[in-house]
């Protein structure tokens, strides 16, 4: 439990508004018609980290991210993203969000989808052309650039969605299950790119239910029933749980939370 409370004590209100802190969450709650989706969540994500939120379906990962990007209003507590209390509009330009569903327009081509989001984020023409080229390489869809998204496979759509999120080169990324439906080979490429983003000083917050992937994160936050039950470097978590993989570690902390 000590991981959960790390760095929480002794903060002042002023520090909440530190624009360099990607995510700071205090007693964050979200209820839907009496159903508690996020329950007194406490967390802090430091800049330049690859942070993985893991947990079973319904553990509150997506709800938490939707509050961070301003799509849902917290029922209680507060969350600061880049120093601004959510929901706020000040930092939208600095944040990238990839929804869990394949949120791209099926009646547009890959290129047109990317162009739309570039326009919405006021990306200059040259920047757009340069990044589009780069991202098409990353998602390995250069040849399908002018194909309608509706004609792509599920995995390809998902990759397009990632490219749309990255087109304005945000410094903080919220990726909700970015690798789901992506074949293993390409997934390796994705993680290399996430590492690349990190190397360029970006903060990446992602959710995944592939435990083997989560090992590649700097910090993993384990969520269960709307709460963070453990947080730390994958190695440390496994050591504390005396487990050989994250899955067993998750089971260990789950039991601890129940007790």
């Amino acid at each position: 439990m000590s991981e959960r409370t790390r760095g929480r004590t002794g903060r002042t209100v002023g520090e909440n508004e530190d624009r360099s802190v990607p995510v700071l969450v205090r007693k964050l709650r979200k209820e839907f018609d009496g159903l508690i989706a996020v329950d007194d969540l406490e967390m802090m994500i430091s800049p330049g980290l690859l942070y993985g939120l893991i947990g079973p379906n319904g553990s509150g990962k997506t709800t938490a991210i939707k509050m961070f990007v301003g799509l849902l209003r917290p029922s209680g507590g507060e969350a600061y993203v880049l120093g601004e209390k959510v929901p706020g509009r000040e930092n939208v330009q600095r944040v990238g969000y990839m929804p869990q569903e394949t949120a791209v327009y099926p009646d547009l081509t890959i290129h047109e989808n990317m162009e739309l989001f570039a326009e919405l984020y006021s990306v200059s023409r040259e920047d757009f052309e340069r990044r589009e080229k780069l991202l098409l390489d990353v998602i390995d869809l250069k040849a399908r650039k002018d194909s309608l998204v509706s004609q792509l496979s599920g995995g390809m759509k998902h990759r397009t969605s990632l490219a749309c999120t990255l087109i304005h080169d945000p410094e903080l990324l919220f990726l909700d299950e970015p690798t789901v439906g992506v074949d293993p080979e390409l997934r390796v490429g994705f993680w290399e790119y996430f590492g690349n983003l990190k190397a360029r000083g970006k903060t990446v917050v992602l959710t995944t239910h592939y435990m083997d992937e989560a090992v590649r994160c700097d910090v993993v936050g384990m969520m269960r029933a709307g709460r963070l039950i453990a947080e730390g470097a994958p190695k440390d978590l496994m050591a504390r749980a005396n487990a050989s993989d994250l899955e067993s570690a998750f089971m260990f902390f789950s039991r601890g939370d129940n007790a």
Binding site: K66, L71, A103, F117
Partner: peptide
């Protein structure tokens, strides 16, 4: 349905 609205609303578009 396809969550593109979420994406639009999370963008600078008001």
């Amino acid at each position: 349905g396809q969550s593109t609205l979420d994406r639009l609303l999370a963008s600078p578009a008001t």
